[in-house]
Design a binder for these strands. Sequence first.
DNA 1: CAGTGAGCGAGCTTCCGCTTGACTT
Length: 786
Amino acid sequence: MATSKRKSKETSATRPLVIVESPNKVKTISKILGEDFVVRASVGHFADIPATKKGVEIENDFALSYALTKKGVDVIDGLRKDLANASELILATDADREGEMIAYLLDFFLKPTIPVSRIEFRSITKKEVLAALDNRRQINMELVEAARARRALDHLVGFQVSPVLWSKVRQNLSAGRVQSPALRLIVEREMDRIKFVEVEYCGVDARLEMTGEVTAGLRTINTVPVATSKDIDEAGVVAAPAELLLVPAAQELVARLSGAPLTVADSKNSKYTRKPYWPYTTSTLLQDVLSRLHLNSNAASSILNQLYEKGLISYPRTDSAQLAPWTTEAAREQVIAMFGLNAVPETAPRFPSKKRSAQEAHEAIRPSDFGKRKPAGLTAQQLAVYELIWRRTVASQMLPASGTTVTVTFTASAEKNDYVFTAAGTTITEPGFRRLYSAVDDDEPTPLATFTVGDTVQVRELVINEHITKPPARFTESSLIKALEAEEIGRPSTYVPIISSLRNEYVWSKQGDQALIPTVSAVAVCNFLNSEFKNLMNYKFTRQMEDRLDAVVEGADTYLNVVRNFYEVGDATWCSLKATIDAALDTYKPEDHPVKHIGLHPETGESIDLRAGKSFAVRTKQQKSAKKGRGARSSGSPYFKYAGRNFSVPDAMEFGDITLDFALALINTPRVENRVIGEFNGEQVEVRTGPYGPYIARGKVNVSLPKELDPATVTMEEVLPLMQFPRSLGTDVDGEEVLVKLGQYGPHVSKAGENRSVGSLEIAQSITLAEALELLSRPKKRRGKR
DNA sequence: CAGTGAGCGAGCTTCCGCTTGACTT
């Protein structure tokens, strides 16, 4: 009998073709299936509906015509060749709605004449993949219909509502099912911060006279609770029965109580238990990585992908925290090896998603091999992320942390007033999962000394702590992802792109800070959408959509009915999108809706209103991505009008800072006219003021005026040093000229298209050829985020 | 990147969800 190996090669023309989504899965699955199968990848979606209003043919029963994407043409070409030699086609795309759509589109574009079947597996193990092969089915058309409905609905929202923004707010803006509620979260939080009323309050701590540091905090005065931040709301109102303690009263109190001992009135024990954290999903992992490693979400997400490509972790885009049985077992074995048999619970905990929209097509994010504790060849950041994943997954199989929390109550009396202080501490008897993992915001439990009821303790010192209530924190990339996931808005593969997309027009951050600050445009768009598109801005919108799609999957509803109801007819869930759009176009008068009424001019009484930029200035997408574009046009910035003049306000300005004082200062700043200050190399040199401040224009070269120079008085002599650029440093041994230039990204050296930043103008002025060549020989820095 | 929005008007912008690479200074 011929060896099976040779046989399979000879008959390769009849091997089944298995198609998955991720190219990174191909190798693993090939290894499992052996040479009897050919495994290929679709590389995600390879076809889409056109990105125009015609993407959904409303007049034609909302038909969708999918066409191959640029990348998809090559993918399908390759797959066709593989198909020509295949005995059958097995569609093994992800086990979720989009995966079913991709399977359907593969079938649609490949038009196979051989048998076709669909299989699914949630983790790539021999057992599961082989079991899947024995469990063939046909493409589930209900799932496909639901996916089409999702696609159509998103397209309709994006491509019908965005143009309304162009006509009512300003050009170049966008709206979408996911991005618009995300924007609302950020803008609403900003408004909460602006409205926030700060309140000063005090606390009093008694440091007890005993060995070891014990501090008891004042809780009540004559049974009236002393207000803490949690008793004070955003409007500065204190919730009864708590009352504010202010500095003078606190000082009086301290004077009165000074020297008085505290009596131990009560000591209560309660059980302390903390369950292990669930294994990571994309959302929880991104949150943890962002808050621990201080990366932006793009960087974090690419590290996850790198670990995945190296085969060190399971698939990084998942909404499931579930572990496959063998993973659970491997994690438990790891725990037992490290901490003994008693460190694992009798039955392994399970982590089924509580979210209706969860598709759970993959496992939780976990190490591929628990034996790999510190894989070699990783960067410090990659290792740190791997380590987190390893710890969290293994810890998920450990015992809860448990112990006892003691709360001791002390009393003191002075001048007919009764004062109650409390102190609390926790003694851990079983550290459990905490031996491997604790969250960033977990408090470290500390034990409290033992007190006997009836004893008295001397007070070493009474300390007054002054506080001011803090406004709610702005969203960070991390907390935004958390909020989106909580509202079930967006999918694991889109959390990071959504943030990038918001950063395009709607949010910005200060250097070195993670807080997301909305632009003025963001507020304008949010105000408009809140007023005219309440449904879309409802945080429940996506959940409502998912319910409707579920009905399609169950066969209780159809694509046409869902999409038509959404767009044209309206029903119990939705009012017609078309009617809403028409109403907005018809009745919304932008002039009646300033972004903000700044105030009245104190002398003239004239109203000063902030308005979004106008439509005449448009920056094309090509220009945004710094490709060759058409003429230099920029996005209109917000402005206010006063006394017939327009005053622009930077779009990236904190909304709360756009006050009447700010406006008056702008109005009173003398205007600097453009001014020719001299000539250089036969070209006129002019000082101008642009949207980014004053600059020097010479021919086609623009250079920002350094801050220390005043545009009103600056002389040719002062700007002469700026005129020396671009400057030749000479030629390298290979004959290439080396230049120093002032460019869009600052001063840099340049040789044959290679560029390196030189950091400062001073260095640019003094740099030598040798230094420039040294810089150019260094590896390129990765392009950093702003 | 480069304006102090008069008027005219053509032409442009835009979604979410799957995947990887390629990546300015």
